[in-house]
Simulated scan of single mutants.
Amino acid sequence: MRVEIWTDVACPWCYVGRARFDRALAAFTHRDRVEVVHRSYELNPQAENGDVPIIDAIAAQYGRTREQQVAREEQAAAMAASVGLDFRIGGRVFGNTFDVHRLSHFANARGVQDRLLDLAFRANFAEERSIYDRQTLLNVAVEAGLDVDEVRQVLDDREAYAEQVRADERLAAELGAGGVPFFVLDRRYGVSGVQSVEMFTQALEQAWTERSAA
């Protein structure tokens, strides 16, 4: 069975949603026969890298007060803590995640995509290191097991793995994804948002049962 997961490393709900799905999958009886495919989704494809705090940028984008956005960050931090994830508030900045997605596809070609994404999410939310900074991306990629010279080549070539990112985003639109995280099980079921471990467990079991019946 194949599970496709669309995420953006800038998305706090993706950070939590991936962890909850991983818990459900770890307890799933047929986990060794589940292929997980990570796909790209940019929440803000037109964003520019800078030093604007993420709290201020997102509050302005959605018409919230700063206090309202801080409350949402605190909610995300509490949800992250419930699955053993660290989550800092106040130090992240707004930016463009296209390079992270390109590196994710490069990492997939080298067999370390899951590791790269784990480290990128951790860098962003647990350590508040800017995932838009070239040196941060290099450090994360090397820690994931990638060759630093090859990573530099990918980052320098703006078209390297760009089509793979765009193809993922086109597919998300075709499947009706309006945001992330977005999980698709065997192209039969879509699960949107940061659902509970129990919901992911139910979705896995239902998709597996119907696959077996078919």
Rank of each mutant, 00 (worst) to 15 (best):
R170P: 04
R170A: 04
E48H: 07
E128Q: 09
R115V: 15
V52W: 00
Y15W: 12
C11E: 13
L185W: 06
G176E: 00
L204H: 14
R39N: 06
F94C: 03
L117R: 01
R134F: 15
E205A: 11
F182P: 01
G190D: 02
I89T: 08
A207P: 06
E73T: 10
A203D: 07
A203E: 03
F106T: 04
A81G: 11
L117P: 00
R18N: 11
A126V: 10
N139R: 08
D51G: 10
R2T: 06
R166H: 07
T29W: 12
R2S: 09
E210M: 15
N49P: 06
A10I: 15
V142W: 13
T136L: 08
V52L: 01
P53D: 02
A141P: 01
A109Q: 01
D32F: 14
L185F: 15
F87R: 09
A77D: 00
R152L: 00
R88H: 14
R39P: 03
E143M: 14
R187Y: 05
V3H: 09
A80Y: 02
Q46I: 12
D99I: 06
A107Q: 04
T209C: 02
F21C: 03
Q61I: 13
G63M: 15
Y132A: 03
A213S: 00
Y62D: 15
M199A: 06
S104C: 10
F21H: 07
